[in-house]
């Protein structure tokens, strides 16, 4: 009578021990339910998450402030001395406030400056390319999901892999030099040129992440009702005007979300750059996260307190951006309700 397929029978076989385990687990849990009721069970279900979350996210958030007000190279709080706002003062001590190099922690300000320009350029260019890509993918293309996949492909690659792929291409014997060589140019060592490494980090991070934003924008474009375009066509509206008057305004909320998301991610840039350039040459591609990492762990003159102070400053920027994003989300929700 029963018609189970081999695969479902295999599944049942694999699940049998798990199900048996769950039945055993159920016994004490039934007891707990009897004793504490539904409220107790809710707490039980929430507990593991909250515990891990509390220890590994909330607690560090709190401790970070304590860290930023203590000095020394030790990691255990008990071995650290209270220094008040010294770490912050150190970050902000400069001979000449217009010249980052005159600051006591010039590396921090270099990293801030680098990160700022990186964020501005990377986000602008990336969102622009993502928008163009989304607009093109939104056209009546054959095999659209293939083309979507093409642009999405690098998104899943690990940052280390991304860094290595491009390190290999920008090599002296790399693909880029090979292609330029075809046009008669001599090979160039791109990754030892301060200006080019900066450009490279921007280009590579756009390459790696653009597809993600294009995908979200494409979803936004597809959510615009088709009949608006049909109505515009009936009115004989010019395509450019359709873009400026219909597409862009209706896409604006998505665009805003995507920009803020991209900003939040760009501020934290680290992995692929670390592999590609290691922050160099010199400090030309030293960004904030790497500064924090090296100040906290790697460099010979380790100073976790200073790293914590810097991370709190970075966190403040991220909090502002996040609140902004939540605000946008809330406003869109309200709009949806109305």
């Amino acid at each position: 009578m029963s018609t189970t397929s081999p695969s479902s029978r295999l599944g049942a076989l694999l699940m049998a021990p798990v199900n048996a385990l769950m039945r055993i687990v159920d016994v004490p849990l039934r007891g707990l339910q009897k004793a504490t009721g539904l409220g107790g069970m809710a707490a039980f279900f929430l507990a593991p998450n909250m515990l891990i979350f509390g220890i590994f996210v909330l607690l560090p958030l709190v401790i970070n402030f304590v860290y930023s007000m203590t000095g020394g190279t030790a990691f255990f709080l008990s071995e650290r001395s209270f220094v008040g706002a010294d770490q912050y003062a150190r970050l902000f001590t400069c001979a000449d406030y217009l010249d980052p190099m005159s600051c006591q922690e010039d590396a921090f300000w270099t990293a801030v400056g680098n990160t700022f320009w990186f964020v501005v350029l990377q986000v602008t260019l990336m969102i622009l390319t993502a928008l163009i890509t989304a607009l093109i993918l939104n056209r009546d293309l054959a095999a659209r999901s293939f083309w979507r996949a093409v642009f999405f492909f690098p998104v899943l690659l690990s940052p280390v892999v991304v860094g290595l792929i491009w390190k290999w291409i920008l090599q002296r014997q790399g693909l880029l030099n090979f292609m330029l060589y075809q046009f008669g140019n001599e090979p160039y060592t791109w990754l030892t040129d301060r200006n080019w490494t900066f450009v490279a980090t921007i280009g590579v991070s756009i390459w790696a992440h653009m597809g993600f934003y294009a995908l979200i924008l494409l979803a936004g474009l597809q959510a615009i009702p088709k009949d608006l375009y049909e109505a515009a066509e009936m009115d004989g509206t010019k395509p450019a005007r359709v873009f400026w008057r219909i597409t862009l305004p209706l896409l604006a909320p998505n665009l805003l979300v995507v920009v803020v998301l991209a900003l939040i991610r760009a501020v934290q840039i680290f992995d692929e750059v670390y592999v590609l350039t290691g922050g160099g040459p010199g400090t030309s591609t030293l960004y904030l996260t790497q500064y924090i990492y090296e100040t906290g762990f790697a460099s010979a003159l380790r100073n976790p307190g200073l790293a914590a102070a810097a991370s709190i400053l970075m966190g403040a920027v991220l909090v502002v951006l996040t609140l902004f994003q939540l605000g946008i989300g809330r406003r869109q929700e309200n709009k949806g309700k109305r």
């Binding site: 560090p60 401790i63 970070n64 990492y293 906290g296 991370s311 970075m314 966190g315």
Partner: peptide, 8 residues
């Protein structure tokens, strides 16, 4: 990147 020092 914000909590790596205390998390460590």
């Amino acid at each position: 990147s914000v909590i790596m020092v205390p998390l460590y």
